[in-house]
């Protein structure tokens, strides 16, 4: 069975290491915060100007001045720090944030990513996505492996307008985990019940299967 969104988030959470500063994008990446392994302490960055993002507030304690990059009401934690938007992207650019997790419409086998614009549809803007992908040290993409029509979203090259070049290091899709290497996608794990044949059939970009490929464990 392909993974659901929660399971994709759960698998990505295994990539978190103790002491990491992490930026989680909107959508599936946000769910990663729910599955941080026990004993792993990470600090979540919200690019509108907060390190140490806490959980949603209790009902009645929402504060319009305290939101995350998805404009949701949130809280701080002991040790949180607030700053302006220039510093927020400055720390990402300077490589201080260890990991960025974001969604994508397409990823190419050289690590190019497209996630901000579909020609012919209303363009809402790139927000912080271009800054994050251009400069972040380590980028993991959470995405569905295919579109609704079944077309692969892991491609030889992106067909949609590019957000950033050669920046994605790893993809966790509903079918498996893929490292992005100089030799294209390398499948290192498959979702329980998903076959290598299915992964091969649904991956349009260059793909190799790791010798030690294994079933994903949660």
């Amino acid at each position: 069975m392909p993974l659901n969104k929660e399971q994709i988030a759960k698998r990505i959470a295994q990539e978190l290491e103790d002491g990491f500063y992490v930026n989680l994008g909107i959508g599936i990446p946000t769910l990663v915060a729910n599955y941080i392994p026990k004993g792993v302490n990470v600090v979540l960055q919200s690019e509108n100007g907060l390190l140490g993002m806490g959980p949603f507030p209790f009902e009645g304690e929402e504060d319009a001045d305290m939101i995350n990059a998805g404009k949701q009401t949130i809280t701080t934690l002991p040790g949180s720090a607030l700053f302006d938007s220039a510093m927020s992207f400055g720390m990402i650019r300077a490589g201080k944030v260890d990991l960025t997790v974001l969604g994508a419409m397409e990823v190419a086998d050289n690590g190019d990513i497209a996630n901000w614009k579909i020609p012919g549809k209303m363009v809402k803007g790139m927000g912080g996505a271009m800054d994050l992908v251009a400069a972040a040290k380590n980028i993991i993409v959470a995405m569905q492996h295919t579109d609704k029509a079944g077309n692969s979203k892991l491609l030889p090259q992106c067909s949609l307008p590019i957000t950033g070049l050669k920046c994605v290091k790893k993809v966790v899709s509903d079918l498996g985990v893929f490292d992005v290497t100089p030799n294209g996608f390398v499948c290192i794990e498959y979702a329980p019940g998903v076959t290598i044949e299915e992964i091969k059939a649904k991956t349009a970009g260059m793909l190799t299967i790791a010798d030690d490929v294994k079933e994903m464990v949660f």
């Binding site: 949603f56 507030p57 209790f58 304690e61 929402e62 939101i67 998805g70």
Partner: peptide
């Protein structure tokens, strides 16, 4: 001070 996405926990 309008809130765009009012999110809370129980």
């Amino acid at each position: 001070k309008r809130i765009e996405q009012r999110t809370t926990r129980k």
